[in-house]
């Protein structure tokens, strides 16, 4: 027998030229369903003007990122049971730091442009991907096998980063992680992009990006590693090795 909870779903609403506000929807939900399911139900049965993004419903496309009770989550894999109780409120808001297009849907344009600048690879040869338990040695043939990169470009990290809140010029966790994934050895032209005031040096080790990433990218660790690469590259240049 599945549980039934009565919750109040509180959704951020903002349409063009209107002031933002919250709409409350009382609904009966199965707590083992996901937050995205509740939002969809509110759209289907209560208010067809709710605007939100969703696609795969299994944490691969990165479309459904939103703030659930103030914290960035992928709503398709966040079960209702984990974020609220029977009889309580479930607040859903759009991601921080992105312009709101309508309700929960935000304009991700400037983020995608940064990912392109960093040369983000959505697909990479398996030997270059960071995977758990790689073999001690790859065969030369193994490069023919490709893998989706961990980063699904959901933007949760960009929303969680406190520096992203105050400056749109900062590259941001995901683009810097993408640059690290490329590596300065493979792509030395990235050096001037990341060794800049709005590149790796704007990061203040807050680690919120890693804390909210739903996809094991661990952007903070990658930024620290990228810093080592940058310092290494600069020292090499200084001592004339480059």
């Amino acid at each position: 027998m599945t549980d039934k909870w009565n919750i109040t779903l509180r959704i951020y609403r903002q349409k063009e030229n209107e002031a933002p506000h919250f709409d409350n929807f009382s609904m009966e939900v199965d707590p083992d369903e996901y937050v995205l399911d509740a939002v969809e139900r509110a759209w289907a049965f209560h208010d067809r003007s709710i605007c939100f993004r969703h696609a795969c419903h299994h944490s691969t496309c990165g479309a459904c990122g939103m703030r659930v009770n103030g914290t960035e989550k992928l709503s398709c894999i966040t079960s209702i049971r984990d974020v609220t109780r029977d009889g309580a409120t479930l607040k859903v808001e759009p991601l921080r730091n992105f312009p709101v297009v309508s309700d929960l849907a935000v304009d991700m344009g400037f983020f995608y442009r940064k990912m392109e600048l960093a040369g983000a690879r959505p697909v990479l040869p398996v030997p270059e991907a960071e995977i758990e338990h790689p073999p001690a040695e790859w065969d030369a043939d193994d490069t023919q096998y490709i893998r989706l990169s961990d980063c699904i470009e959901c933007g949760l990290c960009m929303s969680a980063c406190p520096i992203m809140a105050t400056t749109p010029e900062y590259l941001g966790p995901a683009p810097l992680a993408a640059a690290q994934d490329n590596g300065l050895k493979r792509k030395p032209e990235l050096l001037s992009l990341v060794d800049a005031e709005d590149g790796v040096w704007r990061c203040h080790s807050v680690f919120e990006c890693t804390a909210v990433c739903p996809s094991f990218v661990d952007p903070a660790r990658r930024i620290m590693d990228l810093r080592k690469q940058v310092v290494g590259a600069r020292l090499s240049k200084l001592f004339g090795k480059a």
Binding site: V194, D195, A196, E197, G199, V231, R234
Partner: peptide
Amino acid sequence: MSQSTFSSSVSAPRPGETTWLWLI
């Protein structure tokens, strides 16, 4: 991929003596 294609909200990177300042 030229950076000017995406210049509307992503400006050219601003380099500086930032590595050294941070190291200091």
